[in-house]
């Protein structure tokens, strides 16, 4: 079967690949670009472990075709830290013990980063509903929610200081 040539951008880097029309963006990220931070927990958009951003919009990469990436900008977990400098969310997740096995962590970080960019002052309920599509089986979500709320508070006070 003939493959489709796709030109796109991943974490700001120009990327080209060939893919089968049936391959998802998740398949392409993992198997062709070897960016394995996005995980396949279900393949049906129910678990959020494959969360990425598509032109800044949070999506499940298992529900986007690789071919659809043409001309768009993809953001993955691998692009969240600035070199060795962790994003405040990444730092807080470690500090708050907000991960156990860590398989859902990349998806949850991509999702919460998108949340805080849209809503810097979310309530606990807002965080919980925003993350309803990111399943975690280890933590009971408690420490995840605390880490997100704490990061949001820190970022807000940083912003205040800056202004």
């Amino acid at each position: 079967m003939s493959k489709i040539h796709v030109t796109t951008s991943v974490n700001g880097d120009a990327v080209e690949f060939l893919c089968d029309p049936r391959e998802t963006l998740l398949d392409v990220l993992r198997d062709r670009l070897h960016l394995t931070g996005a995980k396949e927990g279900c393949g049906t958009g129910d678990c959020g472990a494959c969360s990425v951003t598509l032109d800044g919009r949070l999506v499940c990469s298992c529900l986007v075709l690789g071919a659809e990436a043409e001309g768009h900008e993809i953001g993955t977990i691998e692009g969240i830290a600035n070199g060795e400098e962790l994003h405040p969310l990444q730092q807080k997740f470690i500090e708050h013990a907000a991960l156990q096995c860590g398989i859902c962590t990349p998806g949850i970080l991509v999702a919460t980063k998108a949340l805080l960019e849209k809503n810097p002052d979310p309530t606990e309920t807002e965080v919980r509903y925003w993350l309803a599509g990111n399943l975690c089986r280890c933590t009971g979500y408690d420490k995840i929610i605390r880490a997100v709320m704490d990061t949001a508070a820190d970022l807000r006070s940083d912003m205040k200081e800056a202004t």
Partner: peptide, 9 residues
Amino acid sequence: VGSTQIQGR
């Protein structure tokens, strides 16, 4: 309909 991620699509 679905999660935040689903809402994006």
